[in-house]
C-alpha cells in the first residue's frame, strides 16, 4: 500500500508547488524560465528556506551552475536566429581545392622551407636562383599564414565587409611585396646575402 501511496503523494506535492509562474514560457525579468534552477520548481519549502532563496541574487544562483567564473571578453551582440530554432548548421560544399589540396600545398611549402632554411647556414650563402626560390616560398608561406590569421580573428558572419576588405588588402600587399622582392633580387645581392652582410656589419 505504501508503495502505491508514495509516488502519488509526491506527485501531488509537486503539483501543489508548481505555480503558474514556474511553468510559464514567458521570461521573468531576472532570468528566463528555462534556466530556473530546479530547486525553485520542486522543493520550495523542503530544501531551502524562503529567506535563503531571496537573499541570494539570481545571477549568483546561475553562476553556481558554471564551473568557471563569467568573464566575457565582450558583451554578446544582438542575437538573431536564421530559420527556426532547430535548424542544423549549414555544411559547406566539400571542395578539395579549399580542403585537402590546400592543406597538402601548405605542408609542401612548409616542408620545402626546411632545406631552404638550412642551406644558407650550411653553404654560407645561396646562389641567386635558390635565393629567389626561398623568397617565393617565404612569400607564399607568409600569405597563407596571414590569411589564417584574418580568418581566425575577423569573423565572416559578423564582419563580412571587413573580412573582404582585409583579404583584398592582403592580396594587394602580397603582390606589392612580390614585386619589391623581385626588384631586390635582380638589383641587389639577394636576401640571404643581404641579411648576412647586415648581420655582420
Amino acid at each position: 500500500m505504501a508503495s502505491i501511496v508514495r509516488p502519488t503523494l509526491l506527485r501531488q506535492s509537486c503539483l501543489k508547488v508548481a505555480t503558474k509562474k514556474a511553468f510559464s514560457t514567458k521570461p521573468s525579468p531576472t532570468f528566463p524560465a528555462i534556466n530556473k534552477p530546479l530547486s525553485s520548481v520542486v522543493s520550495k519549502d523542503a530544501v531551502r528556506s524562503r529567506f535563503m532563496k531571496e537573499a541570494v541574487p539570481s545571477s549568483m544562483r546561475v553562476a553556481a551552475f558554471h564551473a568557471t567564473g563569467r568573464r566575457p571578453i565582450l558583451p554578446p551582440l544582438p542575437q538573431s536566429v536564421n530559420g527556426t530554432a532547430n535548424e542544423p548548421a549549414p555544411v559547406p560544399d566539400p571542395s578539395p581545392t579549399h580542403g585537402s589540396y590546400h592543406w597538402t600545398f601548405e605542408r609542401l611549402v612548409s616542408a620545402g622551407l626546411v632545406p631552404l632554411t638550412i642551406a644558407p647556414f650550411a653553404a654560407g650563402s645561396l646562389n641567386p636562383m635558390t635565393d629567389a626560390v626561398l623568397c617565393g616560398a617565404i612569400l607564399i608561406h607568409s600569405h597563407i599564414g596571414f590569411e589564417a590569421v584574418l580568418i581566425d580573428y575577423i569573423p565572416d558572419k559578423r564582419l563580412p565587409k571587413t573580412r573582404k576588405a582585409f583579404m583584398w588588402a592582403l592580396k594587394l600587399a602580397t603582390v606589392v611585396v612580390g614585386v619589391g622582392l623581385y626588384e631586390f633580387e635582380t638589383n641587389d645581392v639577394g636576401l640571404t646575402e643581404a641579411i648576412k652582410r647586415v648581420w655582420k656589419a
Binding site: 503539483l15 503558474k20 514560457t25 568573464r71 544582438p78
Partner: peptide, 27 residues
C-alpha cells in the same frame, strides 16, 4: 496545471532572442 499562453511567432522568437542573450560567452 500548466499555464499556456497564446503567442504569435514573433513573440516566441523574441523570447528565443532574449534567452540567447543570456547564454554564457566565451571566457
Amino acid at each position: 496545471q500548466v499555464a499556456t499562453q497564446k503567442m504569435t511567432p514573433t513573440d516566441s522568437y523574441q523570447i528565443l532572442v532574449e534567452q540567447r542573450k543570456k547564454r554564457p560567452t566565451s571566457p
